[in-house]
Design a protein around this nucleic acid. Structure first.
Lengths: 345, 345
DNA sequence: TTGTACGCGTTATCAA
DNA sequence: TTGATAACGCGTACAA
């Protein structure tokens, strides 16, 4: 690799001059500037950022710790981070912990979990990243950073238990609100719900959004219309009959997978989805587009979460004095209208 | 940040001694070793890898250039890379070019394409990565590295035009072979095909695998059973009737999306998939599990591609002398048996 | 067994 | 307008 020293020698100038020119410092004559730039070109000089970082004591690198890259929401979040990094001249050091693959879906209950995370953070610190974004694979409250962390950090998609670490999350309440509002606008009054797992933040917030939407339209909330699911297709399938018996005209599934189960059952019953009965989902998983009929659902603002998280980290980097205590940023969902909702009456 | 110097001072030893101990060198007495390790613990010392890299002239970092992280195959490939990096103590510097988002699906025809790639490679070189893995979003032949690249590089999922750069790809031929073999084993003799886009490597190889499977079972290839699609659901829908009229008992769709279109049409015709007619796909997209009935298909060896590519890069790093000229590694697909295939007669 | 001194490729200070 | 030179934090001959 050719260094600054070599091009200095070739041009008969000092390395300081070369460095100045390369960094666009105002001094240096046009003459030498040309000469140096030409040599840079000819020798195909590539600056050594590692050396630069050492000297500058910063890396323009953001460490991204993904709990699991292969979970559907993670790539889109990282895509948002990438976009922001691109705009502000940062780059990404990726740590994929592969949690689902290693410990299946209860990884966060694993006793080694904290140690693993600690190790990865220390690793990133070693590499002198300027900030860290922790991307959860599964929305929940967690504490993954120590209080004495010396660089800015943020949690994307999960909620921080540590008040000094901000988080950027889905506005689930609003997401549920807009899709229920949509059903109401289409004339539905009796709207059944199949929930996700109990005690999940998603489940609670989405239920609250559902209730708020009803309230705002002067519809009384009927607890009988709410039935407990667990995010699975089976739980959609099994609970459909119950809601049908309650006389609902629309079913709000708290994710697209549950909706798949509801579709299964409705087809068996020869119900015409989007006419006899309306179904909506949540998440806008790719597969929801391929249901018959395609599923009206709510898109998670994954890209936005990534982008905002990264922007915030960069802000924190540039304004070290201001406090981000207890900051939780909620990104809004988007209604995706497709063919599973019909007009009632 | 606390440095090696500070812990040397605290222990009244030289930095050399500290360095030796930290790197597990045999010298140093138990006494001082204990003393130093204790100080390391107390001061929460974190080694500065940037400085180390500068000194050692290597980074233990692999640059990963993804054409688009949000394309379905990319995360799984990177997951494989991660696993391998983990095993061999490397880390990943991720470059997500966001090609689909920026230029839609013909990005590789964009005239700026090469320049963008060049720029990203140069950037990675600046960061002193030890090797580069280029992950295509779309299987095709491409040349993305210059001949004078001074570090090992490899293409994952795409084919290299440059004979010095190895590639790791899907064994499409084998994938088609095993799924057609499966159909034949189930008694099917008249197997229709809806292809992907013309001139695509996938399309050609999958067709060849289909033909080979027939041949090996003494079934004559009937060109009339092959109809041109273009990877879309619509192309599946439109071509179903044609194949039905030809009297096929099974339809091989060159991807799962096409199969979705075939399902659409077959449902309209009240055909019972998996009984009246069998359908198989390719790719094992998540959604194929949610079709009714769930789709028998072929899983792409994405994880394996990533893992192998990374392993190969690390080999190249450790054996700089041996040649990898014209090396193309093909990873085998896996048959995913589900419910869309029935026994014929 | 331990310490001194140098160099990795930069940037920044200050003097020329 | 330029050039010496001292850092940045670390690893490693070589000397002690």
């Amino acid at each position: 690799m050719v260094t600054i020293k070599e091009i200095a020698k070739k041009c008969n100038v000092s390395i300081a001059t070369v460095s100045n020119i390369l960094n666009g410092k105002p001094n240096a004559s046009e003459e030498t500037k040309r000469k140096v730039l030409k040599a840079v070109e000819e020798l195909n000089y590539t600056p050594n950022i590692v050396a630069k970082n050492l000297k500058m004591k910063k890396s323009k690198a953001i460490g991204v710790i993904a709990e699991d890259l292969t979970v559907f929401c993670t790539p889109e979040i990282i895509d948002g981070i990438t976009k922001c990094c691109e705009e502000f001249g940062y780059h990404i050091l990726l740590t994929n912990m592969r949690m689902y693959k290693k410990f299946s879906d209860t990884y966060y209950e694993n006793e080694d979990f904290e140690q693993i995370v600690d190790k990865e953070i220390k690793e990133l610190l070693s590499k002198q990243v300027d900030g860290i974004i922790y991307v959860t694979a599964h929305e929940r409250k967690l504490k993954c950073f120590h209080d004495d962390l010396k660089i800015p950090a943020i949690i994307a998609y999960g909620y921080s238990k540590n008040e000094l670490i901000p988080s950027v999350v889905v506005d689930d309440k609003n997401g549920a609100y807009i899709i229920i509002k949509h059903l109401i606008d289409k004339g539905h009054r009796k709207i059944g719900v199949i929930t996700g797992k109990e005690n999940s933040i998603h489940t609670n917030d989405r239920l609250e959004g559902y209730q708020k939407a009803l309230y705002d339209s002067n519809i009384c909330f009927n607890p009988d219309f709410v039935v407990k699911g667990d995010w699975t297709r089976t739980s959609g399938y099994k609970n459909t009959d119950y809601l049908l018996n309650k006389g609902v005209t629309a079913i709000f599934c708290m994710n697209d997978i549950i909706a798949g189960g509801v579709y299964d059952r409705l087809e068996q019953l020869n119900k015409n989805i989007g006419k006899d009965i309306s179904v909506v989902g949540f998440d806008n998983r790719e597969l929801s587009l391929f249901y018959h009929p395609s599923l009206t659902t709510v898109a998670l603002p994954l890209f936005e979460i990534g982008y905002t998280a990264c922007k915030l980290i960069i802000n924190m980097l540039n304004n070290k004095n201001i406090s981000y205590k207890n900051q939780i940023i909620e990104e809004k969902c988007h209604l995706i209208q497709r063919c599973s909702v019909g007009t009632n009456k």
